[in-house]
Amino acid sequence: MTETVRRPRVHRPGLDSQGYIEREGSLGGIPHAFRPVVAAARDRLLDVLGPRLDSAYLYGSVPRGTARVGRSDLDLLVALRDEPDDAGRDAVQALGADLDRRFGQIDGVGTLLYSRARLLSDLETYDLGWFVACLCTPLLGEDLAEYLPRYRPDSRLARETNGDLALLLPRWRDRAAAARAPRERLRLVRYTSRHLVRTGFTLVMPRWNGWTSDLHEMAGAFAQYYPERAGQLRSAAVLGYRPSADPEILRTYVDDLGPWLAGEYTRVHGTKAPRPD
């Protein structure tokens, strides 16, 4: 009788046993130093948005448990029962500024504001929907992930998450030219560095067949397929955590690495479906 040879199951980072991306982050994983900030954010969101609030989420390093005191920002995503307006945007911006002033543990607050309808729309299923279902930790209200599918690290997901880099580069160029103060440049370098590393990672994500939110791991995965650009992405990963105000970094991003990455992304995965905004 021939014995069946069973190959050992290869565990892919960030995936469950069926190959779907696992949801990252948890309220229980929030570092102790950041728990007062999260509690204040939760209470203030209820006060500021009232009945307009459908649900709210944390994302980023705080719910992943990797936030660093005095260096990490607090990232929030808020779903409204109606479409966001200027009053709602101003309210959450003021809320973020207030939290930033009150809590030295954080370096800024970023809040994404969308309607429930948009987050659950067909157009956003493989972009904002995936973001909610896989990268966001429920904080308030109903969890919209219950209405969304499970996700694999495939080309469709790559295209719809980061297939619009070419549209962003002109805006980055304008923001870089306008950023005079070192603090402005620091924040812009941090943001653009992270965005480029994540785009480089999702470019190779279907081949790598896994998921991670760690910038160094992302750059390492990218390096396996594009060794000639590996040094640039590894440097961007470092700057994503510890940014520099050197304006030459932004120039390199918008004139060299960014355009190359946008072109290669389009070649491999195509272009992201147009959005109304």
Rank of each mutant, 00 (worst) to 15 (best):
T2G: 11
G14N: 08
Q18I: 00
Q18H: 14
I21R: 09
R23G: 04
G25Q: 08
F34I: 12
R35K: 15
R35L: 10
P36W: 10
A41Y: 01
D43K: 06
R44C: 06
L46I: 05
L46W: 02
D47E: 14
D47Y: 02
D47C: 05
V48G: 04
D54N: 08
A56Y: 01
A56L: 04
A56H: 02
Y57D: 05
L58I: 09
S61L: 03
S61R: 09
P63I: 01
T66C: 02
G70M: 12
A79I: 04
R81A: 14
A87L: 11
A91C: 12
A94L: 11
A97W: 09
A97S: 13
A97C: 09
D98Y: 01
D100V: 00
D100P: 00
R101T: 13
F103W: 10
G104C: 05
D107T: 01
G108T: 10
V109I: 05
T111C: 15
T111W: 06
R116H: 11
R118W: 15
R118L: 08
R118S: 08
R118G: 00
L120I: 05
L123A: 15
C136F: 02
T137Q: 02
P138K: 02
E146A: 15
L148V: 06
L148K: 03
R150T: 06
Y151E: 08
A158I: 00
R159E: 13
E160H: 13
T161F: 02
T161E: 08
G163T: 05
L167D: 15
L168R: 12
R171F: 12
A176H: 09
A176S: 15
V189T: 14
V189K: 06
R190W: 01
S193A: 15
H195G: 00
L196F: 14
V197A: 07
T202R: 14
L203P: 04
P206Q: 12
R207G: 03
W208H: 14
W208N: 03
T212C: 09
T212D: 08
D214R: 12
H216N: 07
M218Q: 15
A223S: 15
Y225D: 10
Y226S: 07
A236E: 03
A236D: 08
V238Q: 08
V238L: 11
Y241G: 10
E248A: 15
L250I: 07
R251Y: 07
R251E: 15
R251C: 00
L257V: 12
L261P: 06
L261H: 06
A262E: 05
Y265L: 09
R267I: 03
V268F: 09
V268P: 00
H269F: 08
H269I: 06
K272G: 02
D277S: 14
